[in-house]
Design a protein around this nucleic acid. Structure first.
Lengths: 168, 168
DNA sequence: ACCATTTTTCACAAACTTTTGAAAGTTCAA
DNA sequence: TTGAACTTTCAAAAGTTTGTGAAAAATGGT
């Protein structure tokens, strides 16, 4: 397989992955492109590589910067802005986890806490079933929250140190 | 908070959660409804509770059955079909994980294996950067695959006892 | 201050997804 | 075999998301 072909396949695979995860396809493709490029790219270069419009490029690059996945790079003596992506996939995974947790899990935890305050006859089987569901989901959500917090805070050696603990 | 209100809030929260995760909103709402109801519901009852059409109900209930999240229940002496959802959230999480892994992670692993076979001058920095990216992502993807497999196969107490200890 | 270059915005168009409801299909008891 | 009860299908409508490109705004060198 040639580089150009492999690049195209990777960009397209990462793109559909993003789409399945509720992330805009173009955003994921720009991210893929920047991850495999050794040097930063300008907006025009991204437009040319992916065949997308200026507006689209601008919007999605900005969103990637919001997520903390892409950085602006200023090349001395150049007016243009360049963009680059974190290449360590573990760091990328942690950034994405942190951001999704904040946007998705945190609001759910809040809603679940509220729902615990349900008043009603505990002998009513509808009330009972509801309370049991919410309690179970809440407990699970807190466990996930704890695990994700640990992952987000973990440093590079987390996996290694975890393995060590396992074998003790 | 009254039961009806709490129910509505839960259904709507679970629904947006689903939407963010690339699952159809109605499908997630039907799932939420069935999780909190003590007894199975018929298609007509689902239609009435959620204010949706017959076709929509049918389509999404079938999809939930495909995912293994909802079961058909036949009530003796009744012609109608009833539907019920698994109420143990850990089982639900495992079903969803198994299904999403199959649909999403497995194809990515395949694509990554292919991309490892890239030929090209190892001194070319583009080739070098690409290979390094793919190798890192591939290693990470395999770790995730392993972790998810363990989770999917786990029994009810695995999450609490093992994972929690690991992360502490 | 001016102008050339670059970035951002935004109204609209295109593509895609979801929902509806009526019609067709199936099932089963009599 | 019939018809009432129920389920499934499907084409069209509604809704949502994404992408475009031209215009406006910002920037920085002279």
């Amino acid at each position: 397989m040639k580089l150009a072909e492999a690049k195209a396949q990777f960009i397209q695979t990462w793109g559909s992955l993003g789409a399945q995860w509720g992330i805009n396809r173009t955003m994921a493709q720009i991210h893929a492109l920047l991850m495999i490029m050794p040097d930063p790219l300008s907006a025009d270069e991204i437009m040319a590589e992916l065949n997308i419009s200026r507006g689209n490029t601008n919007m999605n690059v900005r969103e990637l910067i919001n997520w903390g996945l892409v950085d602006r790079v200023l090349v001395p003596g150049e007016r243009k802005e360049y963009f680059t992506a974190e290449k360590d996939i573990y760091k990328v995974a942690r950034e994405i986890t942190r951001e999704r947790k904040r946007r998705e899990l945190d609001p759910i935890l809040k809603s679940l806490e509220q729902l615990q305050e349900l008043e009603g006859d505990p002998k009513d089987k509808h009330v009972k079933a509801f309370k049991e569901s919410i309690t179970g989901i809440n407990r699970f959500a807190h466990q996930v929250d704890g695990a994700l917090n640990t992952f987000v805070k973990a440093d590079e050696n987390w996996f290694t140190s975890t393995l060590l603990k396992l074998f003790k």
